[in-house]
Design a protein around this nucleic acid. Structure first.
Lengths: 231, 231
DNA sequence: GCGGCCATCGTACGAAAGTCGCAGGCCGGC
DNA sequence: GCCGGCCTGCGACTTTCGTACGATGGCCGC
């Protein structure tokens, strides 16, 4: 039986996605999560979920952060990105980090279902209007290697890395994960090795490249004149 | 006499900007720099430069990094951003970090000159087609406070911060700036205070938010089919 | 089964990081 | 002109990091 998790902080859009999935497979079991923690909690209980539809911007997961986190923790679960911010570069990066597809939020219901069908059929999906552009540019070299390196981290190592990037002390990380500080150090050293960095600051900065500058202001409101502030 | 520095890694576009400036003021003294270090070196010798035209993406300065660096080091010099990647959010952030204006690379020569005229007249310039959108959204709250905090750093502190964010050791920073390690530590502590963080990792991650995911793949090449890799 | 990777812990040590107080110089306000 | 504030620069001390030598058990694919 198809099990899908919809992770999006926008209730209305969750509804839309739910309809799309239900329309494809009425027997599908569909769960929802409004933030990354909720999504992870759900996957903990339902590790046999088939597909996660993950918004690019939601609490606890700016940009590709959530994608990388889920891929690290549940390598076997397919994750498709869903976003309004769909430039070729972002799509390319998402795929490099193991996304099963990229669904544009502006898509119509039937397009959405086409995309879902493709992804459930194990074909990576890209919005048709972006295929050319995505294929044109390669993944930036350093971003590709970064993706490979992050994917080489074990789940636990990735958790440690996220906490390191938050600026936590080894001791605090140990408490958070209920392990000894000594073990945290071992993980940290292993992470440095895999990421090719020399200290935790570089590791944190490296991970932070997964964030993507948020997009889009609502297209409304009146015009603004030129300012007159002296420089 | 008008003194302008054009900082862009694309020679052709430097030429175009040079023409635009020269067309406005034939007596202007125009310098060029292909990367941020060259730009800073030039400003060191010509601190009375009136305006810097800074590309959003160039070696040594991804995103708003260079803007913040120049603003920190030469608060009195106007810096206008020049970029192809001109979404409202980016423009808003650039202004929050003290940009004197935002010039779209796709603009025609006369539009470019209009923009330059406005900026030299101490009016902040925004591409007309984006004024509404820029005014519509506010700067994200945390981004605004980050801008304020970064602006409160002294030039030397900002230099230290950039080196910290590169993962350098205090000793290395001391050598690079020709000061004592102890002094570096004092700066680092002051930086923590101003940024509201507790250690260098958080500081580095914070600074890294100035980077902006690069944009644009060249609009060419053939279409790409759907992949067929299993998840 | 065996090599491989993963996760977990022990001990110890050198090297960083981060905190304490202190002082000269420059600038703007009172 | 004097004062306060900020930037800059400096010694000694505590905590944390990072790495060195380890070791054990579990899981998985060849």
């Amino acid at each position: 039986m198809l099990k899908v998790l919809i992770a999006d902080d926008h209730p209305l859009f969750r509804l839309a996605l739910r309809q799309a999935v239900a329309g494809l497979d009425a027997s599908a079991r569909i769960a929802e999560a409004a933030d990354l923690d909720a999504a992870r909690a759900h996957l903990l209980e339902q590790p046999d979920t088939d597909l996660v539809l993950l918004d690019l911007h939601m609490p606890g997961s700016q940009g590709l952060m959530g994608l990388a986190a889920l891929r690290a923790e549940y390598p076997s679960i397919a994750v498709a990105m869903v976003s309004a911010h769909d430039d070729p570069d972002t799509i390319r990066r998402a795929l490099a980090y193991g996304a099963a597809g990229f669904i544009a939020k502006r898509a119509a219901l039937e397009d959405l279902q086409t995309a879902l069908r493709a992804i459930l059929d194990c074909r990576t999906w890209i919005p048709p209007e972006h295929r050319a552009a995505v294929a044109a540019g390669e993944v930036a070299a350093d971003d590709g290697t970064l993706a490979a390196r992050l994917n080489s981290l074990s789940p636990q190592q990735f958790r440690v890395l996220t906490l390191v990037a938050e600026g936590r002390l080894n001791k605090q990380i140990a408490d958070a994960l209920s392990i000894q500080e000594r073990t945290v150090k071992a993980h940290v050293t292993a992470i440095f090795e895999k990421l090719g960095v020399r200290n935790r600051t570089q590791a944190g900065v490296l991970l932070s490249t997964l964030r993507i500058a948020a997009g889009e202001a609502p297209p409304d409101a009146a015009a603004a004149g030129e300012g007159r502030l002296p420089h």
